[in-house]
Lab assay of single mutants.
Amino acid sequence: QIFVKTLMGKTITLEVELSDTIDNVKAKIQDKEGIPPDQQRLIFAGKQLEDGRTLSDYNIQKESTLHLVL
C-alpha cells in the first residue's frame, strides 16, 4: 500500500502494486475520492509523476507517501 496526502491534510491509503502506472493510481484515487484523474497531479520527492510511468520507475516503495495537488 501507499499513502496519498491531500493539501487539505487528509491521507488516503491505496492498495497498489509497484508495477501499477500513475494512471492506475489516479483511477484508484477517483474511486475513493471522486476526483477526476485529469484534475489530479501527483508529486513524489518534489517531482510531478507522469501518467504512463509506473510507481517503480520513480523508486516509490510500499508505505511511501505521495502528495496530491489539484
Rank of each mutant, 00 (worst) to 15 (best):
T13W: 03
L7R: 15
K26C: 09
K62V: 10
Y58K: 01
T65V: 14
R41Q: 14
T65D: 15
R53C: 03
M8W: 12
V69H: 08
E63W: 07
V25F: 03
M8Y: 14
L70G: 15
T6V: 07
K47C: 15
E50R: 15
S64G: 12
E50P: 11
F3H: 03
D38Y: 02
D31I: 07
L68N: 15
Q61P: 12
I60F: 02
E33R: 01
T6Q: 02
L55E: 01
K5A: 14
E17H: 09
Q39C: 07
T65R: 09
K26R: 04
L7C: 15
L66A: 14
V69R: 13
I43L: 13
F44E: 07
V4Y: 08
Q61K: 09
L18Q: 01
E17F: 09
A45S: 12
S19T: 10
T65A: 14
F3G: 02
L70N: 15
K26Q: 05
G9C: 07
V16S: 10
T21P: 04
N24G: 06
D38P: 04
F3R: 05
L66V: 14
T54I: 05
P36T: 07
T65N: 13
V16G: 09
V4Q: 00
D31T: 05
Y58E: 15
K28H: 11
L42S: 00
G46W: 01
Q48P: 13
D51G: 06
M8P: 15
E63P: 09
G9T: 03
N59I: 12
N59Y: 06
P37M: 12
A45Y: 09
I60H: 02
G52V: 12
K32R: 09
D51H: 04
L55K: 00
V25K: 00
V69M: 10
S19D: 01
K62Y: 13
K28I: 09
I12Q: 10
E33K: 01
D57R: 11
F44L: 13
Y58P: 01
K26M: 13
N59M: 13
V25I: 05
K47Q: 14
T6D: 14
I60S: 06
A45C: 11
I60P: 13
E33G: 03
D23R: 06
Y58A: 14
I2R: 00
D23Y: 07
T13K: 12
K28Q: 06
R53V: 12
L49M: 10
L18V: 04
R53Q: 09
T6A: 05
T65I: 14
K5H: 04
G52L: 07
Q39A: 05
G9F: 04
R53D: 08
I43S: 15
L14D: 00
M8G: 14
K32S: 11
I60R: 01
P37Q: 12
I29A: 06
F3W: 03
G9S: 08
G46D: 14
K28E: 10
G46Q: 13
L49P: 01
M8D: 15
E50N: 12
I29T: 02
V25S: 01
K47W: 15
D57S: 13
M8N: 14
K47G: 14
L14F: 08
G46M: 01
R41F: 10
D23N: 10
E15M: 04
G34V: 08
K62F: 09
Q40L: 07
S64V: 04
I22V: 04
S56K: 14
T21R: 06
D38N: 03
K47E: 15
I22E: 01
T11I: 12
I2Y: 01
K28P: 00
I35T: 12
N24I: 08
D51Q: 02
I22T: 07
I29M: 10
V25C: 06
F3Q: 04
E17C: 09
